[in-house]
């Protein structure tokens, strides 16, 4: 039995099946990501001054990933336009570039950005012990400038066992620049380029620590939001790459030979999904990387 309206539009709605389906799906996606973005904004607005992490993400890397996704949205439209003009070879190349852009985006996320967080450590100092660690926090300097106080000391944890070993009495940290040189005015502003931990070591007694963990989702509401939203977005990118690869493989060639307009419709629907995924990133980037 032939399924109607997969290629031609229904006369009464002017739409073919998959187009109605993708827009209904995207409407549900707007609600999903809208809820997560709202949660992030309210968590941030409600956070105590100085508690919400800032400037931890690598802006140039995020910018590069943004450029990659914008470029992929261009190539997917070109792939679709090529099919409309019955230029299959051009479609094949544009689709290949789109797939590669998606793969590069995911590789940067999974190989560089996320692992960098997993290896980072932060310890929130108890309020009555802040003075003891003034040399790493620089709160007197911040108070003079009217800036909110720091409560976290972060960097590269040398004795990982201390996280789980109840007998361990202290954390040994190679400090982040902000804690190694806290009175440096350059530390009061975001950094454009990633600044790695220094070689300056600090020993923090566990009994002085309110809470400590690696930069994992359980570290803070910030990282819980960060990993949830970028993880969900990454899963969508992966989904898009799988669909594009399917349409790029010989399956697409066969469909093109049988009915080129059918393939063009499928690519258009996949392209609409891809544009939505890219659009989500356009909101993720300023929210997490810039503001």
């Amino acid at each position: 039995m032939e399924i109607p309206y997969t290629v031609t539009a229904r006369p009464d709605t002017g739409l073919w099946n998959a187009k109605v389906g993708i827009w209904l799906f995207l409407a549900s996606e707007v609600m999903l990501f809208g809820g997560l973005f709202s949660a992030y904004v309210f968590l941030r607005l409600d956070a105590d001054p100085g508690v919400w992490p800032h400037g931890l993400l690598n802006v140039p890397v995020g910018t590069m990933n943004t450029a990659i996704l914008i470029a992929s949205s261009v190539t997917v439209v070109m792939a679709w336009a090529s099919l409309k003009m019955r230029k299959f070879r051009a479609y094949w190349w544009y689709m290949l570039v789109t797939i590669l852009c998606g793969v590069i985006f995911l590789a940067v996320k999974l190989v560089y950005e996320w692992p960098q967080k997993f290896e980072h450590f932060g310890a929130f100092i108890k309020k009555d012990k802040l003075e003891k660690y003034e040399q790493y926090l620089g709160n007197h300097h911040l108070a003079e400038k009217g800036l909110p106080p720091r409560t976290e000391i972060s960097g590269h944890l040398h004795n990982h066992d201390a996280l789980h070993d109840e007998n361990a009495k202290e954390y040994e940290i190679a400090l982040d620049p902000v804690n190694a040189d806290p009175t440096n005015p350059n530390m009061d502003r975001p950094h454009f380029l990633y600044v790695p931990p220094t070689e300056k070591m600090a020993t923090i007694e566990k009994e002085d620590v309110e809470y400590a963990n690696m930069f994992l989702p359980k570290h803070s509401a910030y990282f819980a939001s960060y990993f949830t939203i970028t993880g969900l977005h990454g899963a969508h990118v992966l989904g898009g790459v799988i669909v594009f690869t399917y349409l790029w493989l010989p399956v697409g060639t066969k469909l093109y030979k049988r009915n080129p307009e059918h393939l063009a419709n499928r690519v258009e629907v996949a392209g609409l999904f891809w544009h939505f995924v890219d659009l989500v990133w356009i909101f993720v980037f300023p929210l997490f990387y810039l503001l």
Binding site: V77, G271, H275, I282
Partner: peptide, 16 residues
């Protein structure tokens, strides 16, 4: 259509 969505996307990217 994809064409329309692409123009919206490029407009928002420009604003970003």
């Amino acid at each position: 259509s994809l064409r329309g969505f692409h123009i919206v996307f490029i407009t928002i990217s420009t604003l970003l």
